[in-house]
């Protein structure tokens, strides 16, 4: 197990990059998923169709395929994911601004894929809000958007927080695929490098990689348990 000590900087660096990838992808997935959920309950049929098509495609495709299209399809279409070079964000997350696009591609793949699951979790939350709440909101003259923003979504979020937590934990674990689609230096890719390039023993290295993922997923799981317990008390 000496490899964990000798190459601590590699593991720490991998953990940091994976954390950045997961944080940005989680934000992207939550935004996309919320928009898709709103589209799926919109009174305008074409909006509902687009929302439903998005969920159908990305919930049912293997993530590997989504990564494949992000890493090879986007360049073929002439995109380097440059829209993610958001000023300000690139100073905190330096990989977001570099010329090699695989960090951005990984964010796109994870966000788009996870967004479909986020959409369904939020929609189940929306369905948990009694119909009378939206009716009362309409009765005082709130528009569809105001109704969602001030009455329905704040309550739907609370109902959706536990399934959302599971979705995000799954996303963190899924992020391990990014290393196999060009993203150098994230946690699983660091493990592969230590074994194949430096000849370190496989099992201790991947125990190290596992610990890295557990450092992110276990606290998140505990946090969600805590939120759920508080909600149960409040009811």
């Amino acid at each position: 197990m000496r490899v964990l000590v000798d190459h601590f900087d590699v593991f720490a660096g991998g953990l940091w990059l994976t954390f950045q990838l997961c944080l940005l992808s989680a934000i992207g997935a939550l935004l996309l998923g919320t928009v898709a959920a709103v589209m799926r309950i919109s009174p305008i049929p074409p909006m509902r169709w687009v929302g439903a098509a998005y969920v159908t495609v990305f919930r049912n495709c293997p993530l590997t395929i989504v990564f494949f299209f992000a890493a090879f399809g986007l360049p073929a279409l002439g995109s380097n994911g440059d829209f993610l070079r958001i000023p300000g964000l690139t100073t905190i997350f330096s990989r977001l601004g570099v010329d090699i696009p695989y960090f951005r591609f990984a964010i796109i793949a994870l966000s788009v894929y996870t967004g479909a699951f986020v959409c369904e979790a939020i929609r189940s939350g929306i369905n948990a809000v009694p119909a009378g709440q939206a009716e009362a909101a309409r009765a005082i003259g709130l528009t569809f958007t105001q109704n969602l923003r001030f009455v329905v979504l704040p309550q739907a979020w609370k109902a959706a927080i536990v399934p959302l937590g599971s979705v995000i934990i799954a996303m963190i674990k899924n992020s391990a695929l990014a290393g196999f689609f060009g993203l150098v230096g994230e946690l699983s890719n660091s493990g592969v490098n230590l074994t194949s390039a430096l000849g370190e023993p496989i099992i201790p290295v991947f125990i190290g990689v596992s610990i890295g993922f557990l450092i992110m997923t276990v606290p998140l799981g505990l946090l969600i348990d805590h939120v759920e317990r508080r909600r149960a008390v409040a009811r």
Partner: peptide, 15 residues
């Protein structure tokens, strides 16, 4: 609707 007040059987206050 903003000009017509409505009171429901099940109150429907924003929880």
């Amino acid at each position: 609707r903003s000009d017509v007040g409505m009171v429901f059987q099940s109150f429907n206050l924003f929880a």
